[in-house]
Amino acid sequence: MIKLKRRALIYGYGNPGREDDGLGIEMVKMVQNWIDMHKLDCMTTDSNYQLNIEDAEKISEWDIVVFVDASKDEDLHEFICSKVESSDAKVEFTMHAVSPAYVLHLSQKLFNKSPETYVMGIKGYEWDFKEGLSDCAKLNLEQGFQYLTRKLAGWALIKKNLPISMLS
């Protein structure tokens, strides 16, 4: 029996029809398989094209939230995982790009809930109208997956089934 200390939501977003923009969606699929394999209660995933205002209500129901998206940042190698602070929220110049900080801010202000929130950006390279990740993006995805699942395992109280090496 796997007992979770806190409830975690892993939320990937992006357009899988635009090559590496689907990194967030792919990560969520891999994490869900991992969750199912280890029968981790109170941990789940979700995905969408982009973050929306109603996601504020969704994340308000969880203790830990990890957003996952592709990154175009030229200075980034592989991936980055950062804590999100609502103080970083600013009005986005298009509602098409509602940020994780913005969603957290809405959750706090509208629903009085402040889940511990992170955003993971995975480096992508190709963005054409095509399904499937580039080879380099796949490598970054795997690195990110290993890191994320170690973190998730660390948030859970593991009694069996997971190797010690997976704990942070």
Binding site: N15, D69, A70, G121
Partner: peptide, 9 residues
């Protein structure tokens, strides 16, 4: 219309 929204736009 923009179908990508990767971080770092």
């Amino acid at each position: 219309s923009c179908a990508t929204h990767a971080l770092g736009q």
